[in-house]
């Protein structure tokens, strides 16, 4: 391996180059992140409403959930949930007299990261809902809107601009946290890189390449999120 020519060949997308493996890994990183993000949004919205409107036991459980997830290192959470989740599900199925299922690594990864995301999302959405002027919600109630309609037409559009910076942050977090899935052995970008690097012994090259891919994902999402924010903030008065 002397020239840059051979290094470029190593990164080429067709075998014997490893570029294809890396790109496939990047794709599965993005897919895992997207899946986990949406699971997180669903958990977050329900969690936030539960925290604001729920009775005491509901609030207690949700507080426990958000505090625990935010206090425990992600790696431990992911490994714990990955093994405990699959094991626990099979035990429940066994107790119900159903056959055990083999849980797909992708589904497990999405579920685990989604649960982690959900805790942070709960807090982001709770803050965003609290930041909506009460008058707007009262006005909607005065017009006779039912709670469900009120949530869909008033609360949801009004909370989005408040929540978007937090949501953008969390998206960056989930794309980077998804690298931790490599530790439990699901092949996404980080693990693909490690395999490629281990096989060719060009550690530096491949880790640099995957860092560049992650950076590209981050920078691209930055652009997307700032566009989203201008869209959601249209019609709002500009501050400073």
């Amino acid at each position: 391996m002397s020239s840059t020519q051979s290094l470029l060949e190593l990164l080429s997308p067709y075998p014997p180059g490893w570029g294809g493996v890396l790109l496939a890994g990047a794709l599965s990183t993005v897919l895992i992140s997207l899946g986990a993000y949406f699971v997180g949004i669903v958990i977050g919205l329900t969690g936030a409403i539960g925290k604001l409107k729920g009775n005491r036991p509901v609030r207690f459980v949700l507080d426990l959930y958000t505090t625990a997830v935010r206090a425990i290192p992600e790696l431990i959470l992911i490994i714990g949930l990955y093994y405990a989740g699959t094991d626990g599900l099979n035990r429940i199925l066994l107790a119900l007299g159903l056959p055990a299922v083999e849980i797909n690594g992708f589904v497990a990864a999405v579920a685990v990261l989604g649960i982690v995301q959900g805790a942070y999302m709960t807090e982001v959405f709770r803050g965003a809902i609290l930041a909506i002027p009460v008058g707007q919600i009262e006005a909607a109630a005065a017009f006779g809107m039912r709670p469900r309609l009120r949530f869909r037409r008033i609360v949801l559009p009004a909370l989005m601009p408040n929540a978007l910076p937090g949501l953008a942050n969390l998206w960056m977090c989930v794309t980077k946290d998804s690298a931790l899935i490599a530790v439990v052995g699901y092949q996404e970008l980080a693990l693909a890189t490690r395999i490629a690097a281990g096989n060719t012994k060009h550690y530096f090259l491949f880790f640099l390449a995957s860092a560049a891919l992650y950076l590209a994902i981050t920078l691209l999402s930055n652009v997307l999120f700032s566009a989203l924010e201008t869209r959601f903030r249209r019609g709002q008065p500009k501050t400073a």
Binding site: M172, K176, L180, F204, L205, F207, S210
Partner: peptide, 14 residues
């Protein structure tokens, strides 16, 4: 913009 895990592996292995 890049995961800590990748930075760590880049340093350790690379």
């Amino acid at each position: 913009g890049t995961p800590l895990l990748i930075q760590l592996w880049l340093l350790y292995y690379g």
